[in-house]
Structure formats: structure tokens, C-alpha cells
Amino acid sequence: MAARDYGQYCAITRALELVGERWSLLIVRDLLVGPRRYGELAAGLPRIPSNILAARLKELQAAGVIRRVPHSRVIVYELTPYGRELEPVVLSLGAWGFKALGDPREEQVITPDSMTMALRTAFRPQVAATLPATAYAARVGSAGLLVRVDGPALEVTRGDGPADLAFAAGPAIHRVISGDLTPDRAIATGVVEVLHGPGDLLGRFATTFHLAA
């Protein structure tokens, strides 16, 4: 039973009853990256009260969106096939929300899973298919990601590894992705710090990952 009943017989209404409660879609967002333990979900959503997280997980399980499964001697949460059907919805919602993102507030953070989904949202496979395969080591706030682009294929994983370009940035990296700030200007103003590799590869990154604000 959904926590909220709108009293309407409508598919959009039903979808909102299933995943429209606060925090629900952010849980789905993080599980689209991969299965997560309860503690990992809590760490990725630092402002969610523990009782609300438990309630949302229970509701999403009852709706058939997620399930609990054993994994390496621990219990993790993962999306069901029905839940994974939300991926294009979440990506489209991210692209729509990007237009109203504005400048980051001081207290706002970027998590590894939120950055991973932001990159999936901004990825342009048709453009990437025309460019050489490239690996980026991106540290955005506390999120350290290895981003591999090979033709139209994108792979984003946590951690470090061999990369053609390693860079660090804050939430203002969205200005590069939106085209509001050129890669050269981003480096010159300190929005992006090149840690390793030729800085001109940031232009390739901005071409590969682009969302108009």
C-alpha cells in the first residue's frame, strides 16, 4: 500500500504513489549505480533520518521496485527489473532539473552516486563515438570517480586508476557541462584543477558530457 493515496485512477498518479514520496527517487537514483548496503544508502543521503530511510525501503520493496538480497555475507538492496525501468525516467528528470540547477550553495555536496548519475545524464554517446577512447580520473568534492569512455560506451566506477586526464573540481563543474564556462577558462579560474595529463583533454570531456542549462 502506498504511503500516499491521491484518490485518482491515473497511471501518473499511481507512479507518484509508488515513488513520489520524499527521498524515494534518490534511493532509486543511487541503486541505479549498483546494489547498496543500508549503511551505504544512508551515507549517500546524509540528511535522511534513519526511520525515513527504513520506511522508504519498506515501501519500495512492497511496490516491487527494490528487493533485499544476500551478497558476500551481507544483505544489500538492489533494483528489481521493474525498478530498473525507472532509469530513463530518472535520467530525463535529471536533464530537466539541470536547467534550474543554478549555483551550488555552500552546504550542498556531491556524492559519488549523484555524480555518476549526472555523468550518465550528460553523456552524449553519438559524440563520444567520433572521439578517441579516453579515461578521466575525476575528483568532484569527495567523489572520486574513474570515467572511461570508449566509443558510445560509458563506464563510471569509484576509485582511481590509469587515466589520460586527472582533474579536481567542485560543484561548479556543472558550468563546464552546461557550456557556461569554457574548459580553458575553468582551468584559468581554478574551477577545475588539472592533476595529471594534458589540460586540453578537458575540452574533450566537455564535448562528451554536455547539458544545456
Rank of each mutant, 00 (worst) to 15 (best):
Y6M: 10
Q8S: 00
Y9E: 07
T13S: 11
L16C: 05
L16F: 15
E17G: 08
L18W: 09
R22L: 09
R22K: 06
W23A: 08
W23V: 08
W23I: 09
S24Q: 15
L25D: 03
L26S: 06
I27S: 01
R29T: 07
L41G: 10
G44C: 04
L45E: 06
L45N: 07
L45Y: 06
S50W: 11
A54E: 10
A55S: 11
L57A: 06
K58A: 13
L60C: 09
Q61L: 12
A63C: 13
R67H: 12
R68Y: 12
R68K: 15
V69P: 02
R73Y: 13
V74Q: 07
I75F: 11
I75Q: 11
E78Y: 11
L79Y: 14
Y82C: 03
Y82K: 15
G94H: 01
G97S: 04
D103V: 11
P104D: 13
E107V: 05
M115H: 03
T116G: 13
M117W: 11
M117A: 01
A118R: 00
L119P: 03
V127R: 02
V127F: 03
P132M: 01
Y136V: 03
A143D: 05
A143I: 12
A143H: 09
L145P: 04
L146R: 13
R148A: 03
V149G: 06
D150E: 14
L154Y: 06
L154C: 02
R158V: 12
D160E: 14
A163F: 08
A166G: 15
F167R: 03
A172Y: 00
I177S: 00
I177M: 08
D180L: 07
A186D: 00
A188C: 01
T189Y: 04
H196I: 03
R204A: 06
T208A: 10
H210K: 13
H210W: 09
A212W: 04
A213Q: 07
